[in-house]
């Protein structure tokens, strides 16, 4: 069978589908001072998966606000800098108008994913951390 670390080199998704892969990738991103990018990506996935049951609205609103505050509000933050202004205003609008939708972070997640695929993921595959691991 293919060892997991070879699978990680196939695609970003194979890497993010494996606990050890995520752990190593996060260690690399932390070195580069951009672990927030990965945390944001998972926060978006987690938000989409939130229970849609009644009575959960308050929790979802609180969570949407927390994601907005931590990653998007500060325009100098590593995540905020890599999301399009239109996408950021859309999210801001949703939060301000209390219009909480499971897909409200989808576009931002797509943009951040593209940055990872073009930038940090290829760098990770060439990094000492990954090469030493393999």
């Amino acid at each position: 069978p293919t060892p997991p670390y070879l699978k990680w080199a196939e695609s970003l998704h194979s890497l993010l589908d494996d606990q050890d892969g995520i752990h190593l990738f996060r260690t690399f991103l932390k070195q580069e001072d951009c672990a927030d990018v990965l945390d944001f990506w998972f926060a978006c996935s987690g938000f989409r998966k939130q229970d849609t049951g009644e009575g959960n609205e308050e929790k979802k609103l609180k969570l949407a606000k927390a994601i907005y505050k931590k990653y998007i509000l500060d325009s100098n933050g590593i995540v905020s800098r890599q999301i399009k202004p239109a996408t950021k205003s859309f999210i801001k609008d949703c939060v301000m108008k209390l219009h909480i939708d499971p897909a409200m972070f989808d576009q931002a997640q797509t943009e951040i994913q593209a940055v990872m695929e073009e930038n940090t993921y290829p760098l990770f595959l060439k990094s000492d951390i990954y090469l030493e691991y393999t």
């Binding site: 494996d18 998972f42 926060a43 996935s45 994601i67 931590k70």
Partner: peptide, 20 residues
């Protein structure tokens, strides 16, 4: 009451793959 950080951490963990 969950603090915002706890809520965020819980959300991030919920999206991670489970141990195979």
């Amino acid at each position: 009451i969950d603090s915002e950080d706890d809520l965020l951490q819980e959300c991030i963990s919920s999206a991670m793959p489970k141990k195979k």
